[in-house]
Design a protein around this nucleic acid. Structure first.
Lengths: 195, 195
DNA sequence: CATTTTACTGTCCCATAGGTCAATTATTGA
DNA sequence: TCAATAATTGACCTATGGGACAGTAAAATG
């Protein structure tokens, strides 16, 4: 058996191309032809590897999410204390190479389709469940159980909100601003000795 | 002069129809024909009142935003103390009739277009500037000036994040959850005697 | 009442997008 | 080496969408 099947390579190339086109063009403007061009291939090949446009973008979202997940996991593995785990989750979500307007634009376009694509909704659900479970396992060391729920929602909403702001006003919000905001939240919301 | 010009009525009907179609179909699926059908008119009329599709949706966003603004302003007028003004802003952003998945879906679709439509970006900028100024004028009574900036970002990001969550997981986040979250933030972030 | 302006419709046109398919070119494995 | 399988292309089809337009109905205005 070949080490890496060519179909896997192509699929990944096409997923990535799809994501890049999405950054520039949004969902409406992201045509199969443009995706093919971005990948340096013909339109036919896209539909050879993906059943249809929807499926292509579902896979694009899965991949984008997987990359983010890996970043968080890598940081989690290096974390030793509950607080470090919290930091790992948060900083993973604001890594330099992700926290960029164009990436956020693509992400937004995908999110906007969630209500009409059950598959995207499923992916979204998985993402959120993982985030929640990661946060809970760290927060439980600092807060009583019911307060944890509140803070989980607070952290996730803050992260999402900061990302959205990045997408809507490309300039004027740096990674550092975002991280500072998250730390500000934690320092006020967690018990004083937590850090 | 006529009391209400028919053109104003039509334009408003079409803006609203556009917004409703956006809720159901997203930007890609929102065609002029569907908007016309939703308004009970013919496609031609849409382009009679709006130069093109883009402009139609720009006006739809303006109107949606105006409605939200009015809700906040009405509450602000009834507020007497700085803290009540804070509450007004926050509660205005989570009024029952707005804080609904379908509305959020339309909003998301519009936001996803912001990077490619300077006009939408401008509207977005105005919205944000108003929010910021409203919040600052209230927060300045509780916090030193530089901390105000931080909390403004915190509040806006939280609001956006909670809205996004509503759009992505229609069930499982009520208006009350959202308000509780905001109050939780304020109670921890503002000086203890603030409320 | 006549004319000009405004409201509105339906048809037409062109471009393009998604998707199918047959044909062509590697790859592979026996 | 040769059949079989996979990769890839490009032509094609169909539907549809945005927009232009000509023409009709309805108001407004003088």
């Amino acid at each position: 058996m070949r080490l890496t099947k060519i179909s896997d390579i192509r699929k990944r190339e096409l997923r990535r191309a799809a994501f890049e086109v999405l950054q520039r063009e949004g969902m409406a403007g992201a045509t199969l032809e443009k995706v093919a061009a971005q990948a340096g291939a013909s339109k036919g090949i896209v539909l050879h590897y993906f059943a249809n446009k929807q499926q292509l973008f579902e896979h694009a979202m899965r991949e984008a999410n997987a990359v983010l997940k890996d970043a968080v996991v890598r940081r989690l593995n290096r974390a030793n204390t509950p607080f470090e785990r919290l930091e790992a989750i948060i900083e993973g979500n604001f890594e330099d190479r992700f926290f960029q307007p164009s990436i956020c634009h693509a992400w937004l376009s995908l999110c906007a389709e969630v209500p009409r694509d059950p598959q995207l909704a499923r992916i979204q659900k998985v993402i959120h469940a993982r985030m929640r479970s990661n946060l809970l396992s760290a927060l439980i060391h600092f807060l009583p159980e019911e307060e944890c729920e509140t803070v989980v929602l607070g952290i996730t909403a803050l992260i999402d909100g900061l990302w959205l702001r990045l997408g809507l006003q490309s300039e004027g919000l740096t990674r550092e601003d975002a991280l500072r905001q998250m730390r500000d939240y934690l320092s006020h919301r967690l018990p004083s000795g937590a850090a």
